[in-house]
Every structure is written in C-alpha cells, then in structure tokens.
Computed example of a mutant assay.
Amino acid sequence: MKQINIGGVPEHFNLAWYLGLKNAEYKEAGINLRWKDFFGGTGAMCKGLRDGDIDMAVILTEGIIKDIIAGNKSKIVQVFVQTPLIWGIHVAEKSKYKTIEDVKGTKAAISRYGSGSHLMAYINAQNNGWDLKKDLDFEVIKNLDGAVEGLTEGKVDYFMWEKFTTKPLVDNGTFRRVGNCPSPWPCFVIAVREDFLKSNRDDVKTILDIVNNTTSEFKEIPSIDRMIANRYEQEIEDVQEWLSLTEWSQDNISKETIAKVQDELFALDIIPEKWDYKDLVEDL
C-alpha cells in the first residue's frame, strides 16, 4: 500500500480529513494516508513541502503562492475552504492596547516569516493605512504556545491568528481581541509537490475525491457541532457560528483569485513578480 504524507494545521477546518482517516476510507482505496499536524502553520508546511517531509498540504492560499514564487516546487490542485479566514488581532489581556490603531508600530508576533500571521499583518496594515516600512515590526514565536508566552511576558505586542481557534484563550482571559481582519480570498488550498504529482496523479485525485465527498456533506453530519466543540475545546455556540460562516470547496482555484492574490502580494512588496496561472496551479 502506497504511503502518502499530508500536512495541515490541527484545527477544526481539517476535521474532514480526520473523519476519512478514522473511517479507513483512504486505506480502502489502497492509500496509506499519513496526516501530520503542523503547529507552526503555513511557513512550517512550506518547509515540509520543500524538504519532501510531506507530499501534500492543506495550506493558506497567500502563503503557498508566495512560497511557490520563491522556489517551492509545488502546485495548487484545489481550493479546500472557499470562505475567507477571519483573523483575530489579539493582545495580552492586561495590555494597554485597546484598538487596532493602538498596535500600529508595535511588535507583531508571527509563527515564521512567510506564514499567514506574517502576510496578514501586511494586509491589516494596508487596510488601516499604515506605513508598511515604518509601522510593522516582527518577532518569530513559532506557534500559538509561543504567542501566549510572548504576549503574556510582553516580548511582543499583538498576534494575528484564526479567531475561532483562539476564542478559548480570549474566553479564559489570556488574550483580548481588539479587532478582526478577514483574508480577501478563499483561505485554504491543497498543494502538492510537483515531482510527487507527476508520478502519483491518480492517487492525488482519489484522495481529493474522498475528502470532497466528506466536505460536500460536512454540515449534515449528525451532531457535527458537538463533535467539533469536544475535539477542539470550543463552546458550542462558537462552533455553530463558525459552521454558519464556513463553506468548503470541491473545485480548483480560479484565475481571478490567483490574479487577486498576486496583485495584493505584489503591491505589498511581498512577491517580486507575478506568475502565470499555469505555473502555480495544476488541473487534475
């Protein structure tokens, strides 16, 4: 049985993968799919793809586009979550900062350079009319635990992360959320290493078919809200709100979206050039 390694963040967005693995759906199709949690987010997954530690990744759209242009030999094969990601902007509960404007020019915690928390800090700065050269300062904290430590100890001033994942930390008084910043495009895509894709195209298609079957009916799974609340230690009403806002996709990313992401990243000086659609995306 062929082993295929896939990575993603250990968050509620990816429960569909867990369910398919739990039900042995991939094994029944002759694929030993091995899931790896990446607590360091998109930057860590980009490194995993580059190093060959994983063959596939469920990864932030803007992060993988930036990294492919920077030399990561991977291709986007599908959108996984169609709706934007809502990034919460967090400070320590006892921080003196009360608004988004208050954190202008202060130190932002990021999981690593090229991660979503890094790139979205630029989007947030642009949205608020900040000077991108003077008003952004970064400190690498690796993951959510690092952010808790950094904010609590005052090493960093604010941190951007998906707001429902961090909601328990807001509820228990670790963080305070001063605002939100939705990503301006579909948030998660599935990317595959190019050399792996060349020789395993049919297996990748099979994997996508299985997970798409789950996501297309995800909201109809009995007691799915309670399952998510228990597994990810969320309040049931937060899970229900998140489910109402989130739509999965079974289609590839559009040319319009690829153009929009690149236009934004280029304007922010995050990528040095814009690439053709075919150099970033593979249709299966």
Rank of each mutant, 00 (worst) to 15 (best):
residue 64 I to H: 01
residue 57 A to L: 09
residue 45 M to T: 04
residue 43 G to E: 06
residue 70 A to W: 07
residue 68 I to K: 01
residue 54 I to Q: 10
residue 76 I to A: 01
residue 62 E to G: 09
residue 46 C to H: 09
residue 73 K to M: 08
residue 47 K to D: 15
residue 45 M to I: 02
residue 61 T to Y: 06
residue 62 E to A: 13
residue 80 F to G: 06
residue 51 D to P: 03
residue 45 M to K: 04
residue 53 D to A: 13
residue 65 I to T: 04
residue 81 V to A: 03
residue 68 I to W: 00
residue 75 K to R: 15
residue 64 I to S: 04
residue 61 T to I: 03
residue 43 G to T: 09
residue 77 V to I: 04
residue 79 V to W: 06
residue 81 V to F: 00
residue 83 T to R: 08
residue 65 I to P: 03
residue 60 L to I: 08
residue 47 K to H: 15
residue 53 D to C: 08
residue 86 I to T: 12
residue 80 F to M: 08
residue 48 G to Y: 05
residue 66 K to N: 14
residue 45 M to A: 08
residue 48 G to K: 09
residue 65 I to C: 07
residue 81 V to G: 01
residue 53 D to E: 15
residue 45 M to Q: 15
residue 75 K to H: 13
residue 58 V to M: 12
residue 73 K to E: 13
residue 69 I to G: 00
residue 59 I to C: 08
residue 52 G to N: 07
residue 44 A to V: 10
residue 56 M to H: 03
residue 64 I to R: 01
residue 82 Q to K: 15
residue 44 A to L: 13
residue 82 Q to G: 12
residue 53 D to Q: 14
residue 67 D to T: 07
residue 53 D to W: 11
residue 75 K to T: 10
residue 81 V to D: 00
residue 68 I to M: 02
residue 79 V to H: 05
residue 75 K to G: 08
residue 58 V to S: 10
residue 77 V to Q: 01
residue 84 P to K: 13
residue 74 S to G: 04
residue 69 I to V: 07
residue 48 G to D: 10
residue 85 L to I: 11
residue 56 M to S: 00
residue 75 K to W: 09
residue 82 Q to S: 13
residue 47 K to F: 10
residue 84 P to D: 13
residue 70 A to Y: 12
residue 78 Q to T: 07
residue 77 V to L: 01
residue 74 S to R: 08
residue 83 T to Q: 07
residue 82 Q to W: 07
residue 73 K to I: 03
residue 77 V to A: 03
residue 51 D to C: 07
residue 69 I to S: 02
residue 50 R to Y: 12
